[in-house]
Amino acid sequence: MPLDTSIAARLKRDSAGLVCAVVQQYDTGEVLMVAWMNDAALAETLTTGRAVYWSRSRQEMWRKGDTSGNVQWVKSAELDCDGDAILLKVDQHGPACHTGTRTCFEAGGSLGAVVAEQS
């Protein structure tokens, strides 16, 4: 099923035709991962309730959980004000990261940023 034209018109894709998807656990707000979506992946996500992405490394559609069992059930999908990022709120079953950790940011580790105090 193609992406609804009213949604497609609002997207600002990169040169590869992709939009960044930030994936968040719907009930805790925990950021799980970042992935990429083309129009077909977004259309399938919106119509099936399963998170589907475009794998840049494999150059193919990737339905989260098909091989790992770590399914993401979509609770909501929102587009940012610029149209260049999607926020997917999901119910994550199992680890979100391919390394086996709950989040991809847990696996990546801290960069040691200085935390500024608000004045």
Rank of each mutant, 00 (worst) to 15 (best):
A9K: 14
G17L: 05
V34Y: 08
V34W: 10
V19M: 03
M37C: 01
A51M: 13
V52R: 07
D14S: 14
S57H: 10
A51P: 09
V23S: 00
L18I: 08
Q59H: 15
T28E: 09
L32K: 01
V52S: 03
L46T: 00
N38V: 10
L18A: 03
W36P: 03
T47I: 05
S15M: 09
A40E: 15
Y26C: 11
T45W: 08
V23R: 00
W54S: 00
A8I: 06
D27I: 13
Y26P: 08
T47N: 06
A16T: 14
V22I: 15
C20L: 15
D39N: 15
D39C: 11
G49K: 11
C20T: 15
A41T: 02
L42G: 02
S6G: 11
G49V: 08
R50G: 01
D27P: 14
V31E: 02
L18E: 06
R13K: 15
M33P: 06
S55K: 12
A21V: 06
V22G: 12
A41L: 09
Q24S: 03
A40D: 15
E30C: 04
Q25D: 14
L18R: 00
S6C: 11
I7E: 04
M33T: 10
A9H: 09
R13G: 03
Y26K: 12
R50P: 04
N38L: 10
M33Y: 00
L32Y: 00
T47L: 09
G17T: 06
R50Q: 09
A16Q: 15
D39L: 08
L18P: 01
G17I: 04
D14I: 12
Q24P: 07
R10Y: 11
R56G: 11
Q59S: 14
G49R: 10
E30V: 03
D27C: 13
W54P: 01
I7N: 06
V52H: 04
E30D: 08
R56Y: 14
L42Y: 00
S55W: 14
M37V: 01
R13S: 06
Q24L: 05
S6L: 09
Y26H: 15
V52L: 08
T47V: 05
I7A: 06
A21F: 05
E44R: 13
L11H: 02
R10P: 02
M37G: 00
V34R: 11
S6D: 14
V34E: 05
G17M: 05
M37H: 02
I7K: 02
R56P: 07
A43Q: 04
V19F: 04
D14L: 11
A43K: 03
T47C: 07
K12M: 06
R50I: 10
W36Q: 02
L11P: 00
A35D: 02
R58G: 12
D14K: 12
D27A: 15
S55D: 10
L42F: 01
D27E: 15
G49D: 09
T45L: 08
W54T: 01
